[in-house]
Simulated assay, not measured.
Amino acid sequence: MPRAPRGSLSHRLIVERAIRLMDDEGLEAVTVRRLAQDLGVRPMALYTYFRGKDEILAALYDHLLAGLELPDSPDAGLDGVRRVMTGYFRLLTEHRALIKAGSGGEADLRLSEVIYMLLLGTGMDRRTAVGVAASLVRFTVGSAALYQERSAWDADADHWSKVRSSLRDLPADRYPIMRSFGDDLPEFTQQQAFEFGVDLILRAAQLP
């Protein structure tokens, strides 16, 4: 990696290099010593901007999360919630190690503020809003984690035909329903499965 020109070290440069390192080699590679090496400075130079690795990871997370486009009016309603969660899912799938770097900092607070603004703006009571927000975040993070294992399915044109074939081979006496899917198992991309789940949670939230 190119080194930082002398005197150009900054908070933003360190964070951007940490993001690149995380994406290329994983979160474990993001250390003060490794960042200093990549930036061509001594480790102590980074302590001018951060107190340690944990603070760098928190800044990395906040920097990426701050890039989400968030509605600024409750009028966006549940459609706005859907867009927010879709953006969050996309962020977590583009930066696969980010799931492990959650900070609970300013960016997280801003995300929560917007989600609750949108949910409460629909007239939803507070208990339901908290339950819906918790369900959405857990589902989104879980879906992003599964995406890392299953994204190859979307790239394999024969994936679903192979799944249906394996289902047809199941013993009918033990797995009659699963075997029946061998004839007409619906296909979902990982993105479609995620969107289906978000819509399901939001529809359930509107039930009396």
Results as ranks from 00 to 15, higher is better:
Asp54Ala: 15
Leu9Gln: 05
Ile19Gln: 06
Met22Leu: 15
Asp23Gln: 07
Gln190Lys: 05
Thr140Lys: 02
Met178Phe: 12
Asp184Trp: 07
Pro171Trp: 04
Gly123Asp: 01
Ser135Ala: 11
Ser143Tyr: 05
Pro5Gln: 11
Ala193Pro: 00
Leu136Cys: 08
Val32Gly: 03
Thr93Arg: 15
Gly40Ile: 05
Arg82Leu: 13
Ala45Leu: 05
Leu109Lys: 15
Glu69Ala: 14
Thr189Lys: 05
Lys100Arg: 15
Lys100Phe: 14
Thr31Leu: 07
Pro5Cys: 06
Pro176Phe: 12
Ala157Gly: 09
Leu119Gln: 03
Tyr49Leu: 06
Thr31Met: 07
Met117Leu: 14
Lys162Ala: 13
Glu113Trp: 14
Leu170Arg: 03
Pro5Leu: 12
Asp184Ser: 07
Met117Gly: 06
Ser10Ala: 10
Met124Ser: 04
Thr189Tyr: 01
Pro208Ile: 00
Glu187Gln: 11
Ala36Ser: 07
Glu28Tyr: 08
Arg83Ser: 12
Val163Asn: 02
Gly7Asp: 00
Asp199Pro: 01
Ile19Tyr: 04
Ala129Ile: 03
Arg110Val: 05
Arg203Gly: 01
Val81Leu: 00
Asp23Ile: 09
Ile56Ser: 02
Asp54Phe: 10
Asp169Leu: 15
Val41Phe: 01
Phe196Cys: 01
Gly104Arg: 09
Ser10Phe: 01
Val81Ile: 14
Arg164Trp: 01
Ser103Thr: 02
Ala76Arg: 06
Gly102Pro: 04
Arg179Thr: 07
Gly67His: 07
Leu21Ile: 09
Pro43Tyr: 06
Phe89Glu: 09
Asp108Cys: 06
Gly102Ser: 09
Pro208Gly: 10
Glu106Thr: 11
Ala59Phe: 00
Phe194His: 13
Val137Cys: 06
Asp169Ile: 04
